[in-house]
């Protein structure tokens, strides 16, 4: 067989594989949207869930998901940023660094349900935080930290060493070079990583079932004092998220329209995650363009 034919066959096979991946994604997303979208309405998105009756919504779960996401990001981002800067810009290549890296890798490969159970034992029981947004946010931090650290490290890696030399040769200290030259240059790619990891966190269920809990008490959206138990901002209240809600309806939902609610919730979840991904690409590209105007 001559090499031209070989080449054609190889390209054909690769196209086929790529096409298959796209097809699977389209089929999956298409099915979820087609079966779920008819259920989605303003009413569905804003009303609280009902335990036994028809016509419940996902308002509180949706809010919980976003609130938990923001809290988890607020906790994990600074830690991940610090860890990534240390590992990439400062750490010498020795056994301590390797140990830290290995630890991060192992942490990232832990099954999320194990992280959830650990969170339950440690935050919920031992630290007496109870089933709460805070417990959930800590569990998500465990889950998110390794991924985020790795992604920020990768972002730093994309900045050419010549930029570091340039900064140092200009009489900037190492810290000034990192914070004033490298980080600003890495912002687009760091932002992309943060949003993508937000998508993963947003869809996470297993780590939250035993930490943020499976109940969504009624909230008073007029009360923004975080110390009141019915306030949406109270971090100590149990908070079922959208992903946990889907899991729960399917395992023990007894409302008559459970199937429709599950489909509708899935559609909302998928759309939210797709939006995260699109936003990551758009913002990353836009910022990069603004920085480089190239």
């Amino acid at each position: 067989m001559n090499s031209k034919v070989q080449n054609k066959i190889a390209i054909g096979v690769l196209y086929g594989i790529a096409g298959l991946v796209v097809l699977i994604l389209l089929a999956l997303v298409g099915y979820i949207l087609v079966s779920g979208l008819p259920k989605v309405s303003w009413h569905f998105l804003t009303t609280p869930a009902k335990a036994f009756l028809k016509g419940g919504g996902i308002g509180i779960q949706l809010f919980n998901s976003f609130y938990l996401l923001i809290l988890a990001m607020l906790i994990s981002f600074p830690i991940a940023l610090g860890a990534a800067i240390y590992l990439y810009e400062y750490a010498k290549d020795n056994w301590v660094t390797n140990l830290v890296r290995t630890a991060i890798e192992i942490l990232s490969s832990l099954p999320s349900v194990v992280v959830g159970l650990f969170g339950f034992l440690f935050f919920v029981v031992k630290l007496r935080l109870g089933f709460s947004i805070l417990s959930g946010a800590f569990a998500l931090t465990f889950f998110n930290l390794p991924l985020l650290t790795r992604s920020i490290e990768d972002s730093l890696h994309t900045i050419d060493d010549k930029q570091r030399e340039g900064g140092l040769a200009l009489g900037l200290s190492r810290w000034e070079t990192v914070t004033r030259v490298i980080l600003p240059a890495a912002v687009p790619s760091i932002l992309t990583g943060v949003i993508l990891s937000a998508g993963r966190v947003f869809g996470e269920a297993a780590a939250l079932i035993y930490t943020a809990g499976q109940s969504a008490p009624a909230l008073n959206f007029m009360d923004w004092n975080p110390f009141n138990i019915s306030s949406p901002l109270n971090p100590m209240r149990p908070a079922e998220t959208l992903a946990v809600h889907i899991w729960k309806i399917n395992s023990e939902g007894i409302m008559p329209d459970a199937k429709a609610i599950s489909s509708g919730s899935s559609a909302v979840l998928v759309i939210a995650i797709l939006l995260f991904n699109l936003a990551a690409r758009y913002l990353g590209k836009r910022l990069y363009k603004r920085l480089t105007s190239a």
Binding site: K162, E165, G166, A169, A185, T292
Partner: peptide, 14 residues
């Protein structure tokens, strides 16, 4: 700061 340096590849900051 007193002994500055210019490199082979132009390396302006972005």
């Amino acid at each position: 700061k007193e002994i500055g340096m210019v490199f082979q590849q132009p390396n302006p900051f972005p």
